[in-house]
Each structure stands twice: as structure tokens, then as C-alpha cells.
Amino acid sequence: MSSAGADIAGPTTGSVQRRRRRVPFWDNARYACIVLVVLGHAIQRLIYDSDIAFAFYLALYAFHMPAFAIISGYFSKSASPTRTQMARVITDIILPYVIFETLWTLTKWLIEGEATPNFTQPSWTLWFLLALGIFRLVLPYLALLRWPLLWTVIISIGSGYLPNVDSTFSLSRTLGLLPFFALGWWLRERGIVDRLRLLDFRPWWIRACALAVFAATGWAAWNWLPVWQAVDLRHWLFYEDSYSDLVGEQWWAGAIRVALMLLAVVLCAAFFALIPRGSYWWTTFGQYTMYVYLLHSFVLYPFRESGVLRDLEPTWIWLPLVTLLSVVVALLLATKPVRWLFRPLVEPRPRWLFRDPELASREGRRNDPTGSRRPRPESRAS
């Protein structure tokens, strides 16, 4: 695994890697993405009783995980990984997955009275950890090919025709979202953002167009909601089910995924166009999305399972309130006390696991799932 942080320059000259100032935009984008993740999970119970919540949910799921994948790809490298980087696939992805999958198994057993341990079937949000691990492992091979973006699109479309490509090890979602990860890497590899000055040049009309895109998406989601419910658009946006489970054996099913991917790219572009470029008091929280991602599901679990989020009326009060609470949850889970308490679970460093213990203790700079780098140890910098 190899990820370049927002404070590290992309190209290198000789053997010297040039450093530059951290770009607040990317931390802002990370935090905005993780808020949308929390929000999407928080409002899920509202969609059964509220058409407005359902339309909002569809518009959100049309782009928020593709945006996360694009950011992750942007800060990933395709070069052959070093021993330390290979060890971090284990410590940053595999071990947290095993730890939190175990915690979820125990939680289900304690609360629901039954649980069947199965580490091949990720619980709730943990699928993205496995997806990131697979993304980073296959990227060096994709980079060897001509037209890597085209190949990932073909893989994404083709995998939907295969019923045996399912949620085992989150393979269906991983292959479905692979083009977005590859797109992020390609943008960095080709220097598109820097060459076109996409972070510097942002006139008012670009933001106006971005707002218009979201307004049109919201209008379409609300105005044609019965259509989207009839075609089960919600599950199409998960990139998880095979086409045969969604529309049967239809040869044209892949075209729907193409349309959804194009929509996601447009919405992601609009989303990034609206992300502020400056540094704010909350910007630093974008460096700790791993904590929010892994912990927020435990915070939401009692609300989801107890049914307190059902039959909440009026929607115009409860939907904004749940949105606000999602922002607060994302803030609290990224604070220093929470990080200090859960660091052994989220960022394990088991020296005993490696033949060379230094591979676990060689901290350097820590990576978040989306490639954010930050100084270590946290006791010296937060």
C-alpha cells in the first residue's frame, strides 16, 4: 500500500521527495465526505416513512461513496510498495477490519442474541476497508496497462453480469467502485488538478453551476420518486447486487450502471466545486476520517435498531435535525479524546506480529483510509 499525503508533492526529482504546504481543500473534502457517510446511515430509517427523506437519500448515495473513492485514489501511488508500505496494508486495513468485525459479532450476539462469525461478509460499513485494501493492491498492475480507466470501467460493468460476484469480501462493491478510485489516481498521475489549476481557479459561475446540478438532481429525485422506487434505484446505487437480482437477465443492464457512473462523476465534480479551499477550525478533522468511519456505526446502531427513527413527523423538522446531529457525531468522533481512547483499535501497532518488529513501530507519517497524512505521534501534534 502506498498513499501520498496532501502535504507531499506528487512527482519527485531524483531521489529527493519535495514537500509542500498542506492543502486545506483536501482535508475539507475528506471531512465533508465522512459527514455525508454518517448522514446517509443516519437517515436510512427515515426513508421508510418520508418521501422527502427518500429523495434526499437517493441524491446522497448517487455520489458520496464515489467521491470518497476518488479522494482515496488521488492520494494513492502505483509504484511497487516498500516493505513498510506492505506492512501498513496489514496494520492500517486488515487488522482494523478483523478487530471491528469481531466487535460487531460480539455486539450482535449481546444485543440480538445470535451471531454467526463470518469474516468473509463485512458488517455494515466495514466493506470499504476491504475495498481500499484491494484498490491499493491492484493499482500497480492497473498502472502497467494502456487505458487503465477504460479497463476499470469494463470491469465494473462486466462484474454486474456475474451473479457469483457478490458481497463476499465486498468484491461486488469493490469492482463496482473501482473506476472512481482509478479516476482519482489518474487525475493525480496526469497532474490534471495542478495543470488546470482546479483548486485555484473557481469563479462564481462554477459554484453556481454546481448548485444547479444538485438542485436538478434533488428535483429529479423528488419529482420521479415513484419511478426510482419501482426500479429499486436505491440498490443500484450500492453497486452491490448483480444485474440479475435487480432487473433479471437483461442484456442492457450494464447501460444503467454506465449512466449511474456518469451521474456520479458529474455530482462529484459539483461536490468538489463547492468545497471551501481555506483552512477552518474543523479542517483538521479531515485528517481523522478513519475514526469517524469505524466508530459512527456503533453510535447509530441503537437508534437504527430501536425504531426511534421511524414515524418521525413532521419531516421538515426531523430531517434537518438528523442532518445536524450527523455533523456533530462526525465532529465528536474525530476529537482528540476519542482518538486517544480508540487508537489501539483503529490504529493498532502489533510489534509481535512481524518478524521485523520495526515494521510495526516505524511510524513516520500516518495514513487515513483516504490517504491523509499527519504527524505522529499524536501526543506531539493533533
Score class of each variant (00 low, 15 high):
Thr174Trp: 08
Glu305Cys: 04
Thr105Phe: 00
Ser244Pro: 03
Tyr31Arg: 07
Arg362Leu: 15
Asp27Ala: 10
Glu363Ile: 13
Pro203Leu: 09
Arg355Thr: 15
Leu312Asn: 00
Ile47Asn: 04
Tyr288Arg: 01
Leu46Met: 09
Leu106Asn: 00
Ala334Lys: 02
Leu267Met: 15
Asn28Gly: 10
Tyr61Lys: 06
Ala62Leu: 05
Trp127Thr: 00
Val328Gly: 12
Ser76Glu: 06
Asn164Ser: 13
Arg362Asn: 15
Phe298Val: 08
Met1Leu: 08
Arg349Thr: 15
Tyr161Trp: 10
Met86Leu: 12
Ser159Cys: 12
Glu101Asn: 01
Pro350Asn: 08
Thr116Gln: 05
Ile256Phe: 10
Ile192Cys: 07
Leu142Asn: 05
Gly176Ser: 07
Leu187Pro: 09
Val23Thr: 06
Arg45Val: 10
Leu106Gly: 01
Tyr97Met: 05
Arg277Ile: 03
Glu101Lys: 01
Leu106Phe: 03
Gly248Thr: 04
Phe180Lys: 00
Glu347Leu: 12
Tyr57Phe: 11
Leu263Trp: 11
Ser379Arg: 13
Pro357Tyr: 10
Thr116Tyr: 01
Leu225Asn: 06
Phe272Ile: 08
Ser15Asp: 12
Arg190Ile: 01
Asp7Phe: 13
Ser167Ile: 13
Asp51Asn: 10
Leu178Ser: 02
Val165Ile: 15
Leu178Asp: 02
Ser306Phe: 04
Ala69Leu: 06
Ser167Arg: 13
Val265Asn: 01
Arg339Tyr: 03
Pro337Val: 12
Trp124Pro: 01
Trp228Thr: 10
Trp204Pro: 03
Asp166Trp: 06
Ala220Tyr: 03
Ile52Tyr: 11
Ala215Ile: 09
Thr125Ser: 01
Val327Pro: 07
Asn367His: 14
Val38Gln: 06
Phe75Asp: 04
Tyr74Ser: 05
Arg339Ile: 03
Leu196Gly: 11
Arg18Cys: 00
Trp109Asn: 03
Arg136Lys: 12
Tyr288Lys: 00
Leu324Val: 15
Val292Arg: 04
Arg373Phe: 10
Ser80His: 09
Phe238Gln: 14
Tyr301His: 14
Phe128Tyr: 14
His41Ile: 02
Gly364Ile: 14
Leu110Glu: 07
Glu305Val: 12
Leu126Asn: 00
Ile93Glu: 08
Leu233Tyr: 13
Pro276His: 00
Leu325Glu: 03
Arg339Met: 03
Ala255His: 08
Pro148Phe: 02
Glu358Tyr: 09
Pro320His: 10
Leu267His: 05
Thr174Asp: 04
Glu189Asp: 12
Glu189Cys: 02
Ile275Asn: 09
Phe169Pro: 04
Arg88His: 12
Thr174Lys: 04
Leu331Asp: 09
Asp166Glu: 09
Ser159Gln: 12
Ser80Asn: 07
Thr168Glu: 10
Arg136Cys: 08
Pro276Lys: 01
Asp200Cys: 06
Ala182Met: 09
Val138Glu: 03
Trp222Ile: 09
Ser72Thr: 15
Leu333Pro: 02
Asp7Pro: 05
Ser2Gly: 07
Phe56Asn: 03
Ile90Gly: 11
Gly5Ala: 06
Arg195Cys: 07
Phe272Tyr: 13
Asp241Ala: 15
